[in-house]
Nucleic acid binder design. Structure first.
Lengths: 196, 196
DNA sequence: AGCAAATTTGCGTACCACGCAAATAATTTG
DNA sequence: CAAATTATTTGCGTGGTACGCAAATTTGCT
């Protein structure tokens, strides 16, 4: 990503990245299927960390609080003013169509990991997650993305963590405002309970 | 996709697709950046159709009903037993890592289109969508994906539309069960109201 | 019919992913 | 400590791909 910021994405070859990492190009390709994947590796890492963070929340917390705190934990380090380098990197990521696709993959991993951890927490096996778990995970992932975008274009620059916090609150408020009082007509699976 | 099902994804070259479409390989690449993009074009189309469907719902419907009906409209044609060809195609799509990435792009377009249409409906401009709109769109997209997966592996085969319907209901029920009674502490933007 | 604009096409080039097998490094085991 | 096993890195070759560019063809308009 450093190289891409310095010279522009299309002026960086796999060869260059391999050289900068002091490995052969072939080795680079053993670890990354493309240069785009390499650039998005950091985001992918964070996706996994969010899942882990949720699994580590105490069982005493309600599901919502646990999810919220897990996300905030991972973004806690982003409470200060943003690093211009990082900003430039993310702007780069979202402006290139190919990188954008790669970035979406990383975001889908957030969803996958979150849904698994949520399902575990509500007493299921991660592989057999429910629609409700997927919905919650999808909503969380969406607001993380939206918050990141807002932070990215904020002028003057702002810290990311509070934006994430706002986004999660708006998620909850918005959902509650939109959803009807649903009649529990059919019961197709165990409902998720508010307290894990 | 037909060719990929017949011979396996890696045994289909751009050249073959171009020949089957009776254009030159170069023309193929004028329209699709890769063969994977071409294969996922149908899913991408449907993403746009969902956004359109939402914009066409009558203003008298509540937001939730409008979204729900828009999604169901688009999947209404999938009320019969699934076409084995289609099943094979989607299984192909989600089993190949590269195609999966491309599929995720199409799904992210659902989110984007939905968020825009939702924002319009609640009186904003599509470009400036709120966190709440993004959250709802993300949740919807996630359950569409989850429902598609469940349908895909159902044995015996089942129709897709009812699964989508169940998924949307579980979304609503699950969210209501999980979300706390949020104290409206800060007011950072116009809340979405239930009736557009 | 005649002209302008858009689309299609061929060609050339730089680049890339990955199979395979050899070389090198790390780890286990007697 | 040495030998053997395993894992990692590397070079090479190959089939394939995306895309800039400019020419040729088709399309649309008056």
């Amino acid at each position: 990503m450093r190289l891409a910021i310095e010279r522009g994405l299309e002026n960086v070859l796999v060869e260059d990245i391999a050289a900068a990492a002091e490995v052969s190009p072939r080795t680079f390709n053993n670890y990354f299927a493309s240069k785009y994947e390499a650039i998005c590796a950091l985001t992918l890492d964070r996706s996994f960390r969010i899942g882990e963070a949720l699994r580590e929340r105490p069982a005493s917390e309600s599901l919502w609080d646990a999810v919220r705190n897990a996300v905030l934990d991972v973004y806690a380090s982003a409470s200060a003013a943003p690093d211009p380098q990082l900003i430039a990197g993310i702007r780069l990521v979202i402006s290139s169509p190919v990188l954008r696709g790669e970035y979406l993959k990383a975001l889908s991993v957030v969803q996958y990991e979150l849904a698994g951890a949520i399902t575990e927490r509500t007493g299921g096996v991660p592989a057999a997650d429910t629609f409700a778990a997927r919905a919650l995970a999808g909503a969380i992932a969406a607001v993380i993305q939206a918050a990141t975008e807002r932070w990215l274009f904020a002028d003057p620059p702002i810290a990311l963590a509070p934006v994430i916090e706002d986004a999660l609150r708006e998620l909850a408020e918005g959902m509650l405002a939109v959803l009807p009082e649903v009649v529990p007509a059919k019961n197709n699976g165990p409902p998720m309970t508010a307290s894990g």
